[in-house]
């Protein structure tokens, strides 16, 4: 029996008469890498923001890490990490200072923060940069750092919103090594992406079209379902039916 860490039932977010997220139901299991795919404007970010407690759902049900997204957002926040689409560490603080700040916010002690920062910086190979302002780092390093910060306090679940946007293939590969590493340590990874090769790295994926989940399963299951041998084709078949797009 797999342990469920995220469970939604007909979860919706309506802005006026626009159904940004239109009754999605799915489950995510502990320790898996769950890919949350869809075209631009399909509602991925809105759905993710509801699960993180950043946005109030309009209707439906959802439990994240055992807490209700309607009533217990602050308890959810203790148990998750989040990396937004927009880079959101402090550019005017150094790497160490950012780690110190976020560690402190999650209630880690200064000693704990110091030790963990040390090993993290060694792991990322940033020994020479640790006292540089984050704003001066190249984008790829910033992304890796932002991910490391989002799991610095060892959350149960980490939400990644298009974490590899605008990053070169080599760095993307390194980034996914970090994701695998986190998943091995038992952190559930919930990730949105546009890259279909990244979809292949996920244990299971969902495909969102116009606010609804149109397909859900492992990459091989989906490929079989849509009679094709690559994820790109699965995406095209689904996205072609989409009526809305922001591009």
């Amino acid at each position: 029996m797999k342990e469920i860490v995220i469970q939604t039932e007909k979860l919706s977010k309506i802005f006026g008469d626009f159904h940004a997220v239109d009754g999605i139901s799915f489950e995510v299991y502990k320790g898996e890498i769950f890919g949350f795919l869809g075209a631009n404007g399909a509602g991925k970010t809105t759905a993710m923001r509801m699960l993180c407690g950043l946005s109030h759902p309009t209707s439906g049900k959802a439990m994240v890490a055992g807490f209700d997204v309607f009533k217990q957002t602050e308890k959810i926040k203790k148990n998750i990490g989040y990396m937004s689409q927009k880079f959101s560490l402090y550019d005017d603080l150094t790497i160490l200072e950012n780690l110190e700040l976020f560690g402190g916010i999650y209630g880690m002690s200064r000693k704990e923060i110091r030790e963990k920062s040390q090993s993290l910086i060694e792991k990322l190979g940033l020994e020479n940069e640790s006292k540089k302002l984050v704003g001066s780092l190249p984008l790829g390093w910033k992304q890796k750092l932002a991910f490391s910060v989002s799991i610095f306090h060892e959350p149960k679940i980490v939400f990644l919103d298009e974490p590899t946007g605008g990053v070169d293939p080599v760095t993307r590969r390194q980034f996914w090594d970090l994701i695998y590493d986190a998943a091995h340590r038992g952190i559930t990874v919930f990730v949105t992406t546009h890259y279909m090769d990244e979809a292949e790295y996920c244990n299971r994926i969902s495909m969102m079209v116009d606010g609804r989940i149109e397909a859900l399963g492992s990459p091989s299951e989906l490929k079989a379902q849509f009679h094709t041998d690559n994820m790109d084709e699965v995406f095209y078949q689904l996205a072609r039916a989409a009526k809305r797009s922001d591009s």
Binding site: C52, G53, L54, E74, K75, K77, K78, I80, Y82, S84, K86, F87, S88, L89, Y90, D91, F102, I105, Y106
Partner: peptide, 13 residues
Amino acid sequence: EIGTIEQINVTPI
């Protein structure tokens, strides 16, 4: 504006 408040709001602060 720069989006850092989002990273703050998602913490249990």
